[in-house]
Amino acid sequence: MNINATLIAQAIMFALFVWFCMSFVWPPIVGALAARQKLIADGLAAGDRGKHELELSAKKAAQGLRTAKEKASDIIAQAEKRAGEIVEEAKTNAKTEGDRIIAGAKAEIGQEVNRAKEGLRQQVSALAVAGAEKILRREIDAKAHAAMLTTIANEL
């Protein structure tokens, strides 16, 4: 336990260790620690930002959905209205067309009736004339009675 030159050697050794530590050990490790601290802080901030963005986009998506639903119901209502209109229009058109067809048919029927009547009238008068001719062959002048028969035929 004597104090001897070990003291000086220890002091020099100590100084060298401190110098080495100060030059090559402390600064890089503290720098790395600071870098990691920044990395972690950045990561946390990014996480927060991501969360915030997620909330924002969820809100946006909900709003978009709502708008789309509104639009869809609008379109459906419009389509229903339009369909009603089309049905009404078709009904009206059909009715008009039907009426027209009925009128046409009626007119045609009338014409046919007239034509038939005319034919019948001709045949009846001819038949009457033939009958009368046969009856009157003997006694009546055909010429004098033709005018009278025509009058009768016209009255039919």
């Binding site: 004597n2 001897n4 030159a5 070990t6 050697a9 220890q10 050794m13 260790f17 080495f20 530590c21 090559f24 050990v25 402390w26 890089p28 490790i29 720098g31 790395a32 870098a35 990691r36 920044k38 990395l39």
Partner: peptide, 30 residues
């Protein structure tokens, strides 16, 4: 005169300390 044991042990231990710490310091991955 020198206390060789003191010098030797303290030198080895100081070197061990600095060796491990500087090895970490050399590759400071964040």
């Amino acid at each position: 005169a020198f206390n060789v044991d003191t010098l030797l042990v303290s030198f080895v231990l100081g070197t061990v300390f600095l060796f491990f710490f500087s090895r970490v310091a050399k590759s400071p991955a964040p």
